[in-house]
Simulated scan of single mutants.
Amino acid sequence: MHKTRSPQTPGLRRLCGLVLSGLLLAVVGCSSLPPKTADLPVEQAGTVNVSGAAGQVSATAERKALQGMVNEGKKDLAIHHLKTLTATGDADLYQGNRTRLLVDGPATFGAMKAAIAQARGRVLLQSYIVEDEGVAAEVAELLLARAAQGVKVAMIYDAVGSITTPDAFFKRLVDGGVAVCAFNPINPTKRPGFWGLTHRDHRKLLVVDEDVAFTGGINISRVYGSSSFGRRGQPTGEGALDDGWRDTQIELRGPVVPVIGQVFETTWREQGCQGELGQPAPQKAAAEPGTRVVKVIASDPRDKDNRIYSTLLAAVDAAQVNVRFTMAYFAPGNDFVTALRKAAERGVVVEMVLPGRSDSTLAFHAGRSYYDDLLSSGVRIY
């Protein structure tokens, strides 16, 4: 959704890098988006701006959209959280979207492959890990097939995250008409001058024309192929993998799709990637408008303010009823742990779902070192 990462503050950077894989998407329904104007205090740093398929909407349409969201939930909570969103600047929101939660790898890859197969203008794919076997090989064949039909296809993979993938895999894609770019190559002669070696790209994005976008925590890797897991995290059922992992993705349709496409385009340009991205085919006329309002927050290692982490921390600090989250790598900084503890101590229900086993021993034990303090404050850990 995930995000390029710098190791200068490992716990903080890794945490926000995997919140939603680099693109933090506030998909809002009931209690996150209050109206602006008179309800907001004068000390707020920014205002709410609502856009739709044709750009920024009129003041009347904006008020109607925001009021509709407020009516879904509790007005006081809605206003409270929008004040939080606008505390550091404008809150740019996109209305009229449809969203779908893809709960695991099979659901995600099924939806992504179907979207690629229907591409008409261009396909943009970005992932920390791109493997050369299993589902990755299937995705590669689809990309090559669309490129052969004249669709512009571009891929960004992280040079470290995909270090074990043979060069021949990417060369075959290039030979087949796919524009391929390694994010921040290890070879200093190929690396953009203003990026440090340890600046890595953890985003997972797929954008197909202006029709659909995906983001979340799932790499293009076979380890997400398990369809079900048992009570203790052990894979069960046909097709389950002993080394499998479960993560989550989100599918978005509507005005937010080209916004996510622009995030990809910015990375492509700043990394000096070669090849044409082409133009997306317009959104299908038959597409039905949705009702979800979405905010996109993109960040990279040069972002000193770390917008994703700051937004997450502010949301916890502002919580009045509950905080619920899950993440693959819980290695927080002290400020985030303090925010969680304070929220629980003031009566907020704080619940976390964290891995029972991990491929990163360091992150696993770093997170668990905080469990006693969190539990003693009333945080619930599952």
Rank of each mutant, 00 (worst) to 15 (best):
Q44D: 06
A45G: 07
G46W: 02
T47D: 08
V48C: 05
N49S: 04
V50A: 01
V50N: 01
G52W: 00
A54N: 09
Q56P: 01
Q56G: 03
V57A: 03
T60L: 07
T60W: 04
T60D: 09
A61N: 00
A61D: 00
E62V: 00
E62R: 02
E62G: 00
R63Y: 02
K64F: 11
K64V: 14
K64A: 15
A65V: 13
L66P: 06
Q67P: 00
Q67V: 06
G68M: 15
G68Q: 15
G68H: 13
V70T: 15
E72L: 15
G73E: 14
K75D: 13
L77P: 01
A78Y: 03
I79Q: 10
I79F: 03
H81K: 12
L82K: 10
L82I: 13
L82Y: 06
T84I: 06
T88N: 13
G89K: 08
G89W: 10
D90C: 05
A91F: 07
A91C: 08
L93E: 04
Y94N: 06
Q95E: 10
Q95S: 12
G96H: 09
N97Q: 09
N97M: 10
R98Y: 08
T99M: 11
T99P: 05
T99F: 12
R100Y: 05
R100E: 12
